[in-house]
Design a binder for these strands. Structure first.
Length: 743
DNA sequence: TAATCCTTTCTTTTT
DNA sequence: GAAAGGATTA
């Protein structure tokens, strides 16, 4: 048999061979969906004698796209990195780049990510003197982005608005669109919306793409929003050879405008053939039963029954602990115990919110277990990285106001808000770029005499780089830039994490170098837009060493699988999240989120919940998630571990102390400290000066107890405490610690 | 006028 | 416990 078809089951094979006409593939969790897509791609390529570029495959994440490319390359035994396997946004960007004149936008446009858009919206609201207390800029930003995702223009919205919030949003919306245009910038929704406009208005361009892609595939179809679906329809309606792959049970992006109804619409609109993949190859039957019992509570699902031939397997371990700190420690203990049998890369920890990652990071760090956090404070969202990217954007596109705001006084060069506004005004009045405005600073009377040279110097640096940007390699460009603005010294002195921050910058340089190797013809302008779409760490240099524990949000976990999975913080308020409690629809989405998390596990699944957790910097008690009740008791094994310390112990943290002190309740603190001073045994020594402390020293702290020094500089030290995790200590902490000289 | 310190508010998930 | 805004200092 054809080696492309051989490893497939009957249903999978049927899907692969159904090449012509619309196909709706309902693929349950772990049913070999990616396998079908990749084999189908290879099969069509071969059967129809097509070129690589003739099949369009759309995914939601860069990670999924590159995974798909890798697997197809292995299958067809040659490199397919040039195939049209892309995210929606990157596909949109390519269409725009190829058709600049139809877009009516200058082709040197920059792309604003969500942070950029939000900052722009905040500035606009300030300019319009809108009270940001009653109207939250983030909320307005979200509203505008969701309008754009539904292809609603400011004009359309004017007729629809129905509240005072809408009125405000409308005002900002129009101004925001004008600003984007003036800045020659596009936001994420534009990357879908503008291609739709171009294709609807230019029959020749539409024809081009319809002929380019006689075959199309869309992954994670349940997550498409209406604009994305429209884009697919525009291109696919001619040949109708569209295969969409989805699972309504895994729809977890409703909040971003994803519309599960697209699945039903697709079926009827194209009279699609429907194939359901129901055999699960991933999880033990215990895990699968638990998943089914969670999701079956939702009414109105598409009927499907996942089954497996796998054995029953281990029971699901349910861990109950006193605090979230205990929870982290407990999970790390389990990882240590299981690491006899598994490698670190076999473990994953999932959580509902990014904020939960920190505590695990600390626990893993203190046990020297390698880990990697996916998403979260994303690499490209770190201050030091955004600064440099903003410089690049400003140089590539001197009209970009958002980048201007970001770089004007970074590193600090004594250019304050007043001067900043004056320079922007000048640029506006004369309709010149921000670089030109900087260079014309001496013509602004209100700017202080001694800052004028500083401003002009900055302008000069930007100008020179702008003139050389398509003559030198991206790596050289960035190196010259960093040198010119003395960024290294600035960032090293920035805060206690200066070294970490600088190593992030070095990592950025590496990724530019890597990009350069893959795109030898490219200049820095090409790099910058590519990178804005690549918002997660997986776009960075592939890790040499993949042997680490993976930490990520459940949303990030979709599409992945791990032998051992820990789902932490399974408490009411996190999972389901508190913000969902008012709506059945959102509650169901939370339930599906839990389902997605469970179905990632292959062999061992741990669910954990603390009785108390930190929230708003304060310890609060919490209840187990109501979803836990839906898992039959006979699938569970309980692990209790009550902390030896009462929960109250934890309240003695810096923030609690500060709050209590603020309330004037000094007495309580003093009494508490009185009782809890760790017993000094007499073997410890007082520390006179910081120079006596070395990395690796054991110390005892008056309030935090025992700990080990993990970092020393001339200003502060980092200590990993047994009870309190890693703390930075600076100031006159010496009086509170003793060095432990024994053992 | 700019930098720093202090106070208040607010948290979901992401291409 | 971060991040934004306000008050205070230099």
């Amino acid at each position: 048999m054809d080696p492309i078809l051989a490893p497939l089951n009957d249903k999978q094979r049927e899907a692969v061979q159904h090449t012509d006409g619309a196909l709706l593939l309902l693929a349950g969790a772990g049913s070999g969906k990616t396998r079908v897509i990749t084999h189908r791609f290879a099969y069509i390529l071969k059967e129809k004698h097509l070129r690589l570029s003739n099949i369009l495959a759309v995914t939601f994440t860069n990670k999924a796209a590159s995974e798909m490319k890798n697997r197809i390359s292995q299958l067809v035994k040659y490199d397919v990195s040039g195939a049209w396997i892309r995210t929606f946004h990157s596909m949109g960007m390519m269409i725009l780049k190829k058709n600049p004149e139809a877009m009516g936008y200058p082709k040197e446009f920059v792309i604003y990510d969500d942070t950029d858009s939000k900052n722009l919206i905040r500035t606009i609201m300030k300019e319009l003197q809108i009270n940001t207390e009653s109207f939250n800029p983030a909320g307005v930003a979200e509203k505008i982005s969701s309008l754009k995702d539904n292809l609603i223009s400011p004009d359309d919205f004017e007729k629809m608005r129905s509240s005072s919030f809408d009125d405000i949003a409308f005002k900002v919306f129009g101004e925001y669109e004008r600003n984007l245009r003036k800045n020659k910038a596009l936001d994420f929704p534009d990357l879908i919306g503008l291609p739709i406009r171009i294709l609807s208005k230019n029959q020749d361009i539409l024809n081009f793409y319809q002929d380019l892609w006689p075959y199309m595939m869309v992954d994670e179809f349940q997550d498409t929003n209406s604009a994305q679906y429209k884009l697919i329809n525009l291109i696919g309606s001619k040949n109708k050879n569209i295969c969409v792959v989805g699972d309504d049970d895994q729809s977890i992006y409703g909040w971003r405008g994803a519309n599960v109804d697209n699945i039903y619409d697709f079926e009827s609109r194209y009279q699609a053939k429907v194939i359901a993949l129901e055999q699960n190859y991933r999880s033990t039957s215990v895990i699968l039963s638990a998943a089914n019992s969670v999701v079956s509570k939702i009414s109105g699902r598409m009927e499907k029954k996942l089954w497996t031939e796998k054995k029953e397997g281990e029971k699901i371990r349910l861990i109950e602990v006193t605090t979230d700190r205990d929870e982290a420690r407990m999970i790390v203990d389990q990882i240590k115990r299981f690491s006899q049998k598994y490698e670190y890369q076999d473990f994953a920890v999932f959580y509902r919110t990014n904020a939960q990652s920190r505590i695990f990071e600390e626990s893993l760090l203190s046990e020297n277990i390698p880990y990697k956090i996916f998403g979260g404070q994303k690499f490209y969202e770190r201050k030091e990285i955004k600064d440099i990217l903003a410089y690049i954007k400003q140089i590539v596109n001197p009209f970009d106001s958002a980048s201007f705001d970001r770089i004007i006084n970074v590193p600090k060069r004594k250019i304050g808000e007043a001067s900043q506004i004056k320079i922007k005004q000048l640029a506006n009045e004369r309709n010149i770029s921000f670089i030109e405005a900087l260079l014309a600073a001496d013509e602004i009377p209100q700017i202080q005499k001694n800052t004028v040279p500083v401003i002009k110097e900055l302008g000069q640096i930007l100008l020179e780089l702008n003139q050389s940007m398509d003559k030198i390699t991206p790596t050289n460009f960035v190196k010259i830039l960093l040198d010119a603005i003395h960024y290294r010294n600035y960032i090293l002195d920035f805060d206690q994490d200066g070294l970490d921050r600088w190593s992030n910058v070095e990592e950025l340089i590496n990724s530019i170098k890597e990009y350069e190797e893959g795109n030898p013809e490219a200049f820095v302008a090409d790099f910058i837009n590519e990178v804005t779409l690549q918002t997660s760490v997986d776009g960075l240099a592939e890790d040499q060493n993949r042997n680490y524990v993976s930490l990520m949000t459940i949303h990030n976990a979709k599409g992945l699988e791990f032998p051992v999975v820990f789902i932490c913080g399974v408490v009411d308020g996190l999972l389901p999240h508190a913000s969902s409690s008012f709506s059945q629809r959102e509650m169901n989405e939370e339930r599906r989120l839990f389902y997605v998390a469970i179905t990632r596990a292959k062999e061992n699944l741990f669910l954990s919940y603390p009785e108390n957790r930190f929230n708003y910097g304060e310890l609060m008690s919490c209840l187990p998630s109501p979803f836990l009740k839906d898992i039959p008791e006979d699938l569970l094994e309980h692990i209790f571990k009550k902390s030896s310390k009462p929960a109250g112990f934890v309240k003695n943290t810096a923030s609690y102390r500060k709050k209590t002190l603020d309330k004037g309740d000094k007495k309580e603190i003093e009494e508490y400290e009185e009782e809890n001073i760790p017993e000094f045994t007499g073997k410890e020594q007082a520390v006179q000066s910081l120079s006596e402390i070395n990395q690796g020293d054991k110390i005892i702290h008056k309030r935090f107890g025992r700990g080990k020094v993990t970092f020393v500089s001339d200003k502060f030290i980092k200590v990993d405490f047994e009870e309190f995790g890693v703390q930075n200590m600076s100031g006159n902490f010496l009086a509170n610690i003793r060095a432990v000289k024994d053992d």
